[in-house]
Design a protein around this nucleic acid. Structure first.
Length: 210
DNA sequence: TGCCAGGCCGGGT
DNA sequence: ACCCGGCATGGC
């Protein structure tokens, strides 16, 4: 995948904080809509933990309106910001400090942060080895019959992590970050829901027997 | 026009 | 432990 399309350089976002905010905003939402919301936050000069937390839920909701679910997401953003600002001095390095499993539990305890959002933050903002499973990943694996329809998040993640562990530890973070990004790109191009199969998916060539 | 997009929560079985 | 409705905008 990387040989044909190059390193994807994910996650889109200039800073770890922007990555975290984007992770919440993109829940079940097209990234183009998230970009508008982030542009609003930048224009309002509140893309910083304490300044964003200083906004009321209503003010925040208005700024992120283009991202959809704006009332829900404003509440979720503030739940995240409260933990970051109040419990960790507004310092992401403190929030992400500790063992991966421990930090993961810390994030999952926040209302509005589920497995994918937590893993996105861990992998792309926290430097933790926690593989991201999203709709594209699930769909690609399902259509190629690399997993069953009933596989849960944890099972699919365990499968990916065990498979993608065959590299020097120093390379894994970059590898996992790009691997997930590559799956999303493949998914957008070849594995959308309306296609009955990934008929033209280049991954097909990787399978024994095509 | 309707379907889709990088989920998650809360209430009900 | 699952299943479902709700949440909302913009693009094709």
């Amino acid at each position: 995948m990387r040989a044909s399309h190059g390193h994807q350089r994910w996650w889109p976002g200039d800073t770890p904080f922007e990555v975290c905010i984007g992770a919440i905003l993109t829940q079940n939402t097209a990234w183009t809509n998230v970009e508008r919301a982030i542009a609003n936050l930048k224009a309002a000069a509140v893309l910083e933990p304490r300044r964003m937390f200083a906004l009321s839920e209503e003010q925040l909701a208005e700024l992120i309106r283009p991202a959809g679910y704006f009332n829900v997401k404003a509440r979720r953003l503030r739940a995240f910001l409260r933990v970051l600002v109040v419990d960790h001095q507004g310092d992401l390095r403190r929030l992400f400090c500790g063992e991966t499993a421990q930090v993961s539990a810390r994030l999952l305890a926040i209302k509005g942060i589920g497995p994918e959002t937590a893993d996105s933050m861990l992998l792309y903002a926290g430097g933790h080895l926690s593989f991201v499973i999203d709709a594209y990943t699930r769909r690609i694996f399902l259509r190629h019959r690399w997993c069953g329809a009933s596989e849960g998040y944890q099972e699919l993640q365990a499968l990916c992590q065990a498979t993608l562990n065959q590299k020097p530890p120093s390379k894994l973070l970059d590898y996992w970050q790009d691997y997930h990004a590559q799956l999303v790109r493949i998914g957008k191009d070849y594995c959308r829901p309306r296609f009955a199969r990934c008929a033209h998916c280049p991954l097909r060539a990787l399978l024994p027997g095509g």
